[in-house]
Simulated assay, not measured.
Amino acid sequence: MRTGRVLVGTSGWRYPPWRGTFYPRGLVQRRELEYLSRRVTSIEINGSFYSLQRPESWLAWARQVPEGFVFAVKGPRFVTHLKQLRDVETPVANFLASGLLGLGPALGPVLWQLPPRMRFDAERTAAFLQLLPHSTGAAARLAARHDERLDGRALTETDADRPLRHAVEPRHESFRDPAFTALLHQHGVALVQSDSAGTWPWFDEVTTDLVYVRLHGQGELYAGGYTADVLDTWADRIRGWAAEGRDVVCYFDNDMKVHAPADAMALLDRLGSGRGCR
Rank of each mutant, 00 (worst) to 15 (best):
G224Y: 10
G219T: 14
T199Y: 10
W202G: 08
H216P: 06
A235S: 14
L183I: 06
H216Q: 10
H166C: 09
R239M: 02
Q193V: 14
D236V: 11
W200T: 05
A243Y: 02
A154Q: 00
E173F: 09
D147H: 05
A167D: 05
G224C: 13
Q186A: 15
L183C: 06
L191K: 00
L215Q: 05
W200M: 07
D229V: 14
L215I: 07
V189A: 04
D151A: 15
A182S: 14
R171D: 02
D209I: 12
T227G: 15
L155E: 00
E169F: 01
P178C: 06
V168R: 00
D147P: 01
P201Q: 07
A160G: 12
L164K: 05
T233E: 15
G219C: 14
V192K: 00
D147I: 06
A190G: 09
F180V: 01
H146M: 02
V192S: 03
F180T: 00
D236S: 13
E148Q: 13
T199P: 03
G219I: 13
D204A: 14
A154I: 01
R176W: 06
G188L: 09
D229M: 11
Q193S: 13
L215S: 04
V211I: 11
R214Q: 04
H187L: 11
G224R: 10
H185K: 13
T227R: 14
G225S: 13
A154W: 00
L150K: 02
E173M: 13
T207L: 08
A223S: 15
G152S: 00
T158S: 09
Y226M: 11
L210P: 07
L184V: 09
V230A: 14
G225N: 12
T181N: 08
R237A: 10
H166D: 07
E169C: 02
G217Q: 06
H172I: 03
L150Y: 01
H216C: 08
R165Y: 09
S196L: 10
L164I: 11
L210M: 14
D177F: 02
R145T: 12
R145W: 02
D229P: 07
R239F: 04
L221I: 13
E148H: 12
T158F: 01
L215A: 10
Y212G: 08
E169H: 02
T158K: 01
A223T: 13
L221M: 14
T233N: 12
A235L: 08
